[in-house]
């Protein structure tokens, strides 16, 4: 049986339109062999969580460059919990000051990638930490 592909949702919560990073990560993950779904811009946390459940993804990558990460990332995680889908791993990237990272991790964000991170580093992290959900149990 061929190895099951890990599915990842790359999502852009909030109102900012800076999607250069999200698209580069989406494309790089796809080329690295993952199944990637991209939400497009201007998504609410509800839309993202619904898409994640509907698409049965194993992880969500959130890209935020508007400064609203402390609000939006925890909102996504809270909704995942409410819908019993908190085994979906959440990671994030964008303009995120180091000082905010401990808070985001305490809220359940698995990893934060800040500006200048090589794409290869993000891919390695995903390879290591994200496995198909139903095999994890």
């Amino acid at each position: 049986m061929p190895e099951e592909k890990v599915r990842i949702l790359i999502a852009k919560p909030g109102l900012d339109g800076h999607d250069r990073g999200a698209k580069i990560i989406a494309r790089a993950l796809k080329e690295a062999g993952f199944e990637v779904i991209y939400t497009g811009l201007h998504q609410t946390p509800e839309q993202i969580v619904n898409a994640a459940i509907q698409e049965d993804v194993d992880a969500i990558g959130l890209s935020i460059l508007s400064g609203a990460h402390n609000t939006l990332m925890p909102a996504v995680i809270k909704l995942l919990r409410e819908k019993g889908a908190d085994d979906i791993i959440v990671f994030g990237g964008g303009i995120i000051p180091d000082d905010d990272i401990p808070f985001l991790k305490s809220q359940g964000v698995a990893e934060i990638f800040t500006p200048g991170t090589p794409v290869s580093e993000t891919i390695e992290w995903v390879k290591k930490h994200v496995k198909p959900r139903h095999k994890r149990k």
Partner: peptide, 22 residues
């Protein structure tokens, strides 16, 4: 800020966390 750029008022739920940020 992003809500103003997107035509969303500050009291709209979609503006949460973004008011006055960038």
């Amino acid at each position: 800020d992003m809500p103003t750029i997107m035509g969303v008022d500050s009291d709209d739920p979609r503006a949460t966390g973004e008011v006055g940020k960038c």
